[in-house]
């Protein structure tokens, strides 16, 4: 276990902590837009975790997953915003 792997492990642990903290905000968030923001942050965290996992294993196929995930995260938050706009009118 050299320095590089130690760094990757630290980064992975920190990002997992981020996921847990974001889940807290997702649970207590007083309004619906708060939850959408938390959802956005979820997607970004998972993309970062995929990037670090790719460096861990050296398996290059996972980058495609990150690309598709960034697309779908954007679509998800936009459609949630339009949903809120629709239900309050």
């Amino acid at each position: 276990m050299n320095l590089f792997q130690v760094t990757l492990t630290i980064a992975m642990v920190a990002l997992s902590l981020c996921l847990v903290l974001t889940a807290v905000r997702f649970a207590i968030g007083p309004t619906l837009p708060d939850r959408i923001t938390a959802f956005d942050l979820f997607v970004a965290n998972v993309i970062g975790m995929i990037a670090i996992y790719t460096e861990f294993t050296g398996n290059e196929d996972f980058i495609d997953v990150a690309m598709i995930l960034s697309l779908f995260g954007f679509l998800g938050s936009i459609s949630f915003a339009y949903y809120i706009m629709r239900i309050t009118k």
Partner: peptide, 16 residues
Amino acid sequence: ILTGVLFMLISTLGLL
């Protein structure tokens, strides 16, 4: 990577 993870962690704390 460490700088990026630090920014992510700080922004998550800010979310809270």
